[in-house]
Amino acid sequence: MMTSFMLAARMQALLLAGCHMALVMLGAPVWIGLLRWMAAVMEGERRLPDPTAHWRVLLHAWRQVGVRSAAGAQVTAVAPWLALAAGMGAALLVPSFSIGMPGGDLSDVLIIGGLLEMVFLALVVAALAPGLARPGHAGLRVVAGGIMIQPVMLLACAVLGMCLPDGTLAGLVRQAHVADMNLVRVPLALVAGALVLGAVGEGDGTTSTLFSAMLEDLAGPDRAVAQYARDLLAVVWMMLARDLIWPEGIAEPDILPRSGVLAPMLVAVALWVAHMLLACGCVAAIRVFVVSGQRHAGWRGGLALLCAIMAGVLLFAGRGMG
């Protein structure tokens, strides 16, 4: 009896993980397309949204003939796929609509952030490998601009570790279902904002130019995979921020036998879609109205650090008042 129950639980976990990965992997280019449309609209452009436009760009790149620079070919052949693998690993650990997936106990922000950092660095290595001037310098500029995510990540983990006993996202969701989160909501929102500010370079003109310069020695499937990995990187950071701000929106699989199977899941999926739309709008607004211009990388890092420190100060001050 116990064995069959365990087996059913594992099957359920695998099913949830499959649905989650399908949702995230298929949705990543859609979110990026919407984010770019929102940023363009905020900058004054008038056009209708086309959610599948970015998918079409990726498919077009995939169908092109595979060509790569002969210099460093062994590295550029592997690095985009390594980035994709690390991004998929991180996406598996960040819950979208439900917890209870395999690897839930590994959903520590430090692990997720580390895997996403690997995605970032693998893409940079793909740009550095041929030894050409433009892609290499663009890669270095990107990595120097995004490196401040690490202190932000450490501070975020410390804040999260003080809010929660186990410090994982699954633990946060479980606690959100049984306890009042209002005391820690503002610090967690600041942490989420710091992570998005420090890590997501999407929607910014300078970063997009640098990224296209990074990949100019690749064509065909490798280029498509690198572009997709970058989209996945931005989407997983946004999902992480969304989970930190609205953990109540994620369903727990334990409640399934009591209230049906599909309805809570569909509600959770709908909430995830709405929250991701909101997250895309927030990121676009930050890019257009808050940190823009040529020296945006330094501002991004500084502002992200400030937000993370403020989160800690607010958490400690709240505890002191309490």
Partner: peptide
């Protein structure tokens, strides 16, 4: 595997 070409010198 992808075709390898000599790098462009910009």
């Amino acid at each position: 595997s992808a075709r390898q070409v000599a790098g462009w010198r910009q």
